[in-house]
């Protein structure tokens, strides 16, 4: 799963800490999602997308493991 949270954060001039507070998670969770270490639940993904005022597909892109390894 790829995501553009960092891009949207930059566009809204938000820190990880601030986004985490608004969304109701720890800063480390936002960092882990951005780095691709943690795939958020559907609920959390929707909350993030809704906060930025965009659809979930604009923030998160599904990518199966085969494609991901081919890209790498």
């Amino acid at each position: 799963m790829r995501n553009k949270i960092k891009v949207f954060r930059a566009m809204h001039d938000l820190t990880q800490e601030h986004l985490a507070q608004v969304i109701g998670v720890n800063r480390q969770t936002i960092l882990a999602i951005e780095k691709g270490k943690y795939v958020p639940s559907l609920d959390l993904a929707f909350r993030i997308a809704r906060y930025f005022g965009v659809s979930i597909e604009e923030v998160f892109t599904y990518e199966d493991e085969e494609n991901a390894s081919q890209i790498k």
């Binding site: 990880q16 480390q28 960092l31 882990a32 780095k35 270490k37 943690y38």
Partner: peptide
């Protein structure tokens, strides 16, 4: 570690 607890960032 697997779920990014030790990850660091520039912020």
């Amino acid at each position: 570690g697997k779920y990014g607890d030790w990850e660091t960032d520039e912020e």
